[in-house]
Every structure is written in C-alpha cells, then in structure tokens.
Nucleic acid binder design. Structure first.
Lengths: 214, 214
DNA sequence: CACTGTGAATTGATTCACAGCT
DNA sequence: AGCTGTGAATCAATTCACAGTG
C-alpha cells in the first residue's frame, strides 16, 4: 500500500507548490530551484525537496525543477488530471459563495451537483448547476461519480449529511459545519470559522492580561 | 514571556473544548471528565488533560472538570472575555457570508467594521454594520481598537490589505485570499479553498492510479 | 559548480504510565 | 476509587549536512 509514510502535512503543501510552479510555467519560466520555491512559499528549501522526493526524483541536480513537468506531476499525484467531481450540500450564503468561487476558479475540481432541503432553493441554478433536493443526493452522487463532498449545512444536520454522502460513494469531505463528523472510511477535513477566529484571538494583545482577576 | 512552550496545535484545540464545555454547562451538566470530552471531540483524554494543564490545574482529581468554570477559564485564556473586535476586508460573496455568519453566531468576536473598494458596496449595511471604503481602514481600525483582520479580497490586493491592517493596529489576520502574506509581527492564519480541495483529492480513489504513464 | 536527493540529528508533539488529590 | 496532572518514552516531522550527479 502506498502513501503510508508520507506525512499529511506534505500532502497539504503540494497544492501550494502546484500553484507557484504552474504560475511560473505559465509565465514561461522553464526552471525553478528549491531555494526560489522556498522564497515564494515561505517554506524551507529542504522541506520542499523532501516533500517532492516522497514521490520520486523530479529535479535535475545542479539545475533545478522543470516547471511545466513538475506542475504536471503534482497534478497527477493529487489525481487532478482526472477532473475530480465534488458535491456541495447546503446552498446558504456560504454555500453560494463557495459554489461561485469554485465553479469560476477551478477546472480540475468541479462542483457537479448541489443539494439543499429548502424547496425555495431546489430548482435554482448557478453557473449551469441546478440545486437538487437532498433526497436525490445518494443517487446523483453515485451516477455522477462524485468523490468529494462539501458540507455547508447547519451543525445539527451535518452528521446525517456526511452519512448520505458516504452512501453516495464520496471518499473525502470538506466540512464547514461546526460539528464533529463520525464516518469511517471517509477522509474528513474541517474548516470552522469560529475555531479560527477564537484561536486567533489568543495571539492578540486582548488575551495578554491574566492579571486582573474578576 | 508566557505562551512560549505551548504548542500552536494546543491553542487551536481550545475553542473546541470551549464549545463542548459551554454546551454542557448550558445543558446543566455540572461536571465532565477528560474521557467524556475525548469522546465528544475525537481527541485522546491525555491530550485534553495536557492541553488544559498548560494553563493551570482546572480540574478536581477523582472528579473531573467543572463545566461552567472551565468554560469561563478557556474564554479568558483566549481573551474572549474582552469582546475582541474584527474587521472584514472584501465584501464579495464570501465576505458577505462570513459577515452574516459571524455577526449572528458570535458574541465574543464581533465584526466591528467592513471595508471594500467598490463604490457600489460602500454604504451598504449588514446587520447594523456599514461598509466603508478601504481608504478609511487604518483610521477606523485604530479608533475602534480592531485586533483581528479577515481578508476576503482577491489575491492581487491581499498583501496591500494586510499592510493596511497592520498599520491600523491589527495583530492577527485570517486570510482567505490564495496568496502568501508577508507582514511580520502579525500572526497570520490562511484558509485556502483551493488547497483544501486539491489536497482532499489525494485521499480519493481518483489519485490512485499512477500506473498509466503517458 | 550548483543544486537535488537523502540518511542522520534534532526538534516538537503525542502517548504512556503512574504519582498525587479529593 | 476515580480522575487529574505530569515527567518519561515514543513517535512524527523538520532541519542539517553532505554525498551524488548533470
């Protein structure tokens, strides 16, 4: 079984490399060194070399990395060469913003279906994708071969949504609901605005005085 | 200087504890053990005990943690007892969704100001907060004592926005723009939808075949 | 000669195991 | 008796330092 030794942290850095390297390739810069990548990403050159080396020897010693080739290789490692399909569940304000952003910015990961429970939202259309009722989720996901789910429903229905996505064949979930999801065999990544903001507060001078006791 | 030994990862878990513990307190559950917290958060009991112990001995041996007291203590550690002020820059679809979510859900971190460059957006109002022009950012942030900035502008103006926020006295930034920010002395947390989705793709069966070489 | 690729050393975070209270 | 608090041990990730190569 592959991917066993590779740190998750390294995987999460690959898209960063992909962005920088494909920008360089698009700007006709043919070669880039790990030192240059380090500068552009804020990471260390060794870390970049090590991350890339997990997947093979992509560079040329004494020279650097071929930007066009590296960009293709990273896309392939991530599986993006296939065109991955995603489903968005929850067409509230956040869901709307994400759908819009994703459909206009990404080619490689496409929102192929959108679901909501609200009858007012079902039937609406955004950039060519029609909002379907949640009851159609399992079947549509299966038919379309959806592999990624994006959850922007309220916390109270997040678990249920995750289970339906799993039933529909989804293998990875991006969860914006402030709730812990319990679905095994599915890779879950959480993004929780409250957690981000509250932990940021810690790094602020507002948290510095523990002196004054009530 | 405090907070030097405490892992960032532990800080990021505090809001999770806060949520669970304050829910319990609100439900009149007076005491909770680290084992129960572990079950509700998906973390290990040892880790929870260690995280809390970084900040003092909050529990009672043989008993557990007093939920009301612990919730107050965590809020204080994070600095939330003060009511931290945040500024949102970029009132596009995402900015709108975040403003709406944050203003309705949070009491402890309040979006006190919103900025945009678009003259059409300036003057609009959401839940009592009026959108101002970016040129007013530095002064307004200083006046209001804004400590946290939320960036939802396009990547091309993210760096400039970060510098203005810093000039306005902001000490921590939540950056949704797909760009590396270079502002020292300011704590930056990035949330990048593209990175999240692309790294999720790796954990999907779409990425499994490296067999077919072109 | 310059820059990659990588074992070895280091640093950091998590888990273990048990002593210490109540 | 039960559960916290914590040094010690383990595990994982990062950084170092240099050998390998176009």
């Amino acid at each position: 079984m592959r991917r066993t030794n590779i740190p998750d942290a390294a995987i999460r850095r690959l898209p960063v490399y992909l962005r920088v390297v494909s920008d360089l390739a698009a700007a006709d810069v043919p070669i880039v060194s790990s030192a240059e990548l380090a500068e552009k990403t804020g990471l260390s050159p060794e870390q970049i070399r090590k991350d890339l080396a997990y997947f093979g020897a992509f560079g040329t010693r004494g020279v650097g990395y071929d930007t066009a080739m590296l960009s293709r290789r990273i896309a392939r490692i991530l599986g993006l060469h296939r065109g991955v399909k995603a489903a968005l569940v929850g067409f509230g304000h956040l869901g709307y913003a994400l759908a819009r952003y994703s459909l206009t910015q990404h080619k490689d990961i496409v929102i192929a279906a959108i679901f909501d429970v609200d009858p007012e939202k079902v039937g609406q259309e955004i950039l060519g994708v029609r909002v379907q009722h949640v009851s159609e989720m399992v079947e549509t996901c299966r038919q379309q071969g959806v592999k990624i789910g994006i959850i922007t429903v309220p916390a109270s229905s997040a678990q249920q949504t995750a289970e339906l996505l799993k039933a529909g064949g989804v293998e990875a979930i991006l969860n914006f609901a402030p709730a812990k999801l319990n679905v095994d065999g599915v890779f879950v990544q959480n993004i929780d605005l409250t957690i981000e903001l509250q932990s940021l507060a810690y790094y602020t001078s507002a948290s510095e005085d523990d002196t004054a006791e009530e």
